[in-house]
Simulated assay, not measured.
Amino acid sequence: MILMTVVVLATAISGARAQETEKARPSVEAIREYQQLAREVQELFRQKKYEEVLEKCRRMSELIPDEAIPYYKRACAQALLGKTEEALKSLATSVEKGFDEPAHMKKDEDLAGLRSDKRFDELVEKARENEKKPAGRYEPGIEVPGVKTVEDFPEGGLRYRLRMSPTATKEKPNRLIVWLHPAGGSMNNIIEVLTPRFLNKNFALLVFTQKNFRYWRGADAKRLMEGTLPAVAKIEGIDAGKPILMGYSAGGQQALQLWENDPDKFAGLILDAAYPVRRTGPRSFAPIKLPEAEALKRVPLFVLVGENDGGARFWERLEPVWRKAGVPLTVHYVPDMGHTWLFGKFQLAALDAWLSDVAAGKIPRPPAAEPDDNDPNAKPQPPEFR
Rank of each mutant, 00 (worst) to 15 (best):
T5V: 08
T5I: 08
V7T: 14
V8F: 05
L9E: 14
A10R: 11
A10Q: 12
T11I: 05
T11V: 12
T11E: 13
I13S: 11
I13K: 10
S14E: 13
A18W: 06
A18K: 07
A18Q: 15
Q19V: 14
Q19C: 12
T21P: 01
T21I: 01
E22Y: 05
K23Y: 15
A24P: 15
R25L: 12
S27F: 02
S27P: 03
E29L: 08
E33W: 00
E40K: 05
V41Q: 05
E43F: 00
E43W: 00
F45P: 03
R46S: 03
Q47T: 01
K49S: 02
Y50F: 05
Y50E: 00
E51M: 07
E51S: 06
E51P: 04
V53G: 01
E55V: 03
E55C: 02
K56I: 01
R58A: 14
R58K: 15
R58N: 14
R59L: 00
R59P: 05
M60F: 00
M60T: 01
S61Q: 04
E62H: 00
E62L: 01
L63Q: 03
P65Q: 02
E67H: 08
P70W: 04
Y72V: 09
K73E: 10
K73C: 08
R74K: 13
C76H: 03
A77I: 03
Q78L: 14
Q78P: 09
L81Q: 14
G82I: 08
T84E: 06
T84Q: 09
T84H: 06
E85Y: 03
E85T: 11
E85F: 03
E86G: 15
A87D: 10
L91R: 10
L91S: 13
L91W: 12
A92V: 06
T93S: 13
S94T: 09
S94I: 09
V95H: 07
E96P: 03
G98L: 00
G98V: 01
E101F: 07
P102F: 11
P102K: 13
